[in-house]
Every structure is written in structure tokens, then in C-alpha cells.
Design a protein around this nucleic acid. Structure first.
Length: 266
DNA sequence: ATGCCCTCGCCTCGAGGA
């Protein structure tokens, strides 16, 4: 089954592109970020017509996350990241689909750094670490999926030296990501492709896509049992080349029930 | 050191993005 993430950069302005990609790829589960629309303007009917049930946490103009599931309604288990009741930004939603706990997240950008926005990013990361540790303790299949706004290593940036002071690449942020992964998560794309340059985002300006001046900032973190099921990871680069497209490409991973192998091993 | 380009809002420019 295909588990996907896509930062759409405005779901209503992007609806045709999103529907075209859904029709083409037919992912089973999709985590969306940057809806940029309040929940009551979420295009539920259009997605339903395309075969998808959906839950969403919207917000006017900014942020916003959603989970789609092919042929079913995601069972919502959480809305909003715990740890700060003052935080009103729509950046986390979670559901159970096909026995998997799927946490869809849009981590703060954090620029300019340093400053209050960067501090908010670091605080959000700390809360995510605390909550992610709780999820791992449940010992159920969990995937934390979305736009983390972090390039984990030099391999994930077209020109690392240009990004040293940026909020997506500062040492504190890379360390926060590394510490999160070290809890016991697998970075799915990196796990399958340990030394390949893979990007998921290309800026609109400076002809970034044509020059392949990209960043890898959309990630799948898998709990150990899910990591065992991982067979494939694909960045749908061509979608970034479509007209009126997002600055992110959709990304998906394939999870296969290797039950025969697992049965033999246990 | 900055803008590039793009989205949204109530609006033709500003804020935010990465």
C-alpha cells in the first residue's frame, strides 16, 4: 500500500493538480500540508468524488493539514500537537488507517533565525520529540509524515554552504531531527537510498526546478515494525513540472505486508 | 545583502513561505 505526503501550497488553488495526481497515482493514504484555507472551505466533496475520505485541521490563509484515505474515512485520533495549549497553528493531525497510526505534520519554517519564529520552531520540535517518544512506547505501527522543514544532512541540499544560517539547516534543527530519529524511527527515503541526492522541494524562483536546485524536507519516519514493511520510496518529480503546481513534489512510500517472511522469523 | 516566484486575503500590496 502507498502512503504519501504532499505539501500542496494552497489546496483550493491547487485542486486540479491534486486531483490529477491522485487519479494518476491512487495512493492509499495521503498526508497534506499547507492547505491555506479554513476547514469550512476544505474541498471535501471533490475529494470524495475522487474516492477519498478526509479529515482536516484548517486555518485561514496559513498552515493547515489533512489526511486522505482511499475508499474510507480516516479515524481521527488527535488534532494538534500536545504540549502547548496556546499554540493555535494548524500543524498536526493524526488518524488510524488500515491499522497504522498516521501523524501528519507541518513543522514550522522558523525563518528568520534567530528570532521568535525560530524559537517557535525549536519549541515545536521539542514537543514533537516528547510526543513521538510516547507513540513509540505504544509499540503499534506508527508513521510520522509530512513537511519537517529540515534538511537532515548535506546530502539533502543542492548547495549546503548557502544554507548554513537558514532555519531549515541550522545545527540546532539538524540536531533536533537527528535526536528524534535516534528514538528508534527510520527515515524511510534515506533508509532505502543512503547515498543518493534526493529532493522533494524546488523553489519557484531562480529556475530552481530546471537547475535541480532542491531540498529534501518532506520525510517519513517509521516505527520499527513499519520499517520492516518498507519496500519502495518515490518522489514524483514530474508533478513539480506541471502548470500551476506546488513548490513541493508529492512523495510516497510502499509498505508491503511481508507476512510470510515475518511468520518465518517469529 | 537582497530579490527572484507564488499563495492568500478583500486586497492590486503585504505577509509568509523556504
Amino acid at each position: 500500500m502507498k502512503l504519501a505526503t504532499y505539501n500542496v501550497n494552497g489546496i483550493n488553488g491547487r485542486l486540479n493538480v491534486l486531483l490529477r495526481w491522485l487519479e494518476e497515482t491512487r495512493p492509499d493514504i495521503v498526508c497534506l500540508q499547507e492547505l491555506k484555507t479554513p476547514s469550512n472551505k476544505f474541498p471535501r466533496k471533490e475529494l470524495e468524488r475522487a474516492g477519498y475520505g478526509a479529515i482536516r485541521q484548517g486555518q485561514k490563509s496559513w498552515n493547515g493539514v489533512a489526511i486522505l484515505a482511499l475508499g474510507q474515512e480516516p479515524l481521527e485520533t488527535r488534532r494538534g500537537l500536545p504540549g502547548d495549549p496556546e499554540d493555535t497553528q494548524s500543524r498536526y493531525i493524526e488518524a488510524i488507517v488500515d491499522g497504522i497510526v498516521v501523524g501528519c505534520l507541518y513543522l514550522p519554517n522558523g525563518n528568520p533565525a534567530p528570532g521568535p519564529k525560530f524559537q517557535y520552531k525549536l519549541d515545536w520540535f521539542t514537543r514533537l520529540q516528547a510526543y513521538a517518544a510516547e507513540l513509540l512506547e505504544l509499540e503499534v505501527p506508527v508513521a510520522l509524515v509530512g513537511d519537517f522543514n529540515v534538511m537532515p544532512t548535506d546530502l539533502d541540499v543542492y548547495k549546503p554552504e548557502r544554507w548554513i544560517d537558514d532555519a531549515l539547516f541550522r545545527p540546532e534543527v539538524k540536531a533536533a531531527y537527528a535526536n528524534l530519529v535516534a528514538q528508534g524511527w527510520k527515515d524511510a527515503i534515506r533508509h532505502l537510498h543512503p547515498s543518493e541526492r534526493i529532493y522533494t522541494f524546488w523553489a519557484y524562483f531562480r529556475n530552481a526546478y530546471a537547475r535541480d536546485a532542491g531540498l529534501r524536507i518532506d520525510h517519513f519516519l517509521l516505527s520499527p515494525d513499519l520499517a520492516d514493511m518498507l519496500t519502495k520510496a518515490v518522489v514524483e518529480r514530474h508533478v513539480r513540472g506541471w502548470d500551476h503546481t506546488s513548490d513541493h513534489a508529492p512523495v510516497w512510500i510502499e509498505l508491503s505486508d511481508k507476512s510470510n517472511k515475518r511468520r518465518r522469523n517469529t
